[in-house]
Design a protein around this nucleic acid. Structure first.
Lengths: 136, 136
DNA sequence: AGCGATAGTGCAACCCGATTGCAAAGGTTA
DNA sequence: TAACCTTTGCAATCGGGTTGCACTATCGCT
């Protein structure tokens, strides 16, 4: 059983044509992908089908969504054991000049203790400014 | 000289009709306001005029913008001595159920040391999940 | 004050990512 | 096979943000 089938089984998602190609595509990428990225990467597959697939994946914790300051939600496959907890996440730096996003991998997100009975589902930490190339 | 005139003078912004009402409105609010909030609060003033006013204010550091997870950029008047530095900011909690935003005031944003020559301009730290009322 | 230049305003239109309605296609179950 | 539910593709819509353009107010100079 290959990785994709396995994921669908574990996360209780019915494998369909669109779901298989979207998941395969996401697994191949090094960076989180936007809806548009996926649409283009899959050679103009239907946007709304991909969109709904992503929602399904998110509901079943196959992927998690990230807001990295670019204005477009990005998606990445959850790594094994990922509970989409803050420990699994990291800061992003968004350059407002060249519009590139950088993962600040060596800066884990600190634990924030929330008020009583608040429940964290995800965390998006974005720093905006100028990257080294644009900051001349 | 009242507070509004003073701010315009210090921040080098020409006081105009729209700018005066927008700044007065923002000063009256306890929470950061979205473009829509302001439009409605000012009884349907023209959106694009308000929009451009906000951009002008931002350029002149009269206000700073905040992304709090709601999907709408919000604006708040800079407090005296605010350099829009991360020290002046705080985490936000966005409840995905009731769509309310909470300021986590007692959690200052930690200093993140960026890669060489990167320059921070703003930081938006958003935690999403369920607030105490929705987490039953 | 008068006049040309510059800046600000209001309206309408547009952009673009996200989302939805709906009908056709595909799968499942009895 | 027939009835049913799910998924898919297309087109349309939504909504926040942004821009083009003409009109108006303000400024700087004489």
């Amino acid at each position: 059983m290959d990785r994709i089938e396995e994921i669908f089984k574990i996360k209780d998602v019915k494998p369909t044509a669109v779901r298989i190609v979207v998941l395969r595509y996401l697994l191949e990428q090094k960076k989180a992908q936007s809806l548009k990225d996926i649409e283009v990467g899959l050679d103009q597959s239907d946007r709304s089908s991909i969109f709904r697939t992503l929602k399904t994946f998110e509901d079943h914790k196959v992927i998690h969504s990230i807001e990295d300051g670019s204005g477009m939600t990005k998606y990445a496959v959850c790594v094994e054991g990922c509970n989409c907890d803050p420990e699994d996440l990291h800061y992003h730096f968004y350059c407002t000049s060249c519009e590139m996003t950088f993962c600040l991998l060596d800066h884990p997100i600190p634990l924030v203790n929330l008020p009583n009975n608040f429940k964290m589902a995800q965390a998006n930490m974005v720093i905006k400014g100028l990257c080294d190339k644009c900051n001349q």
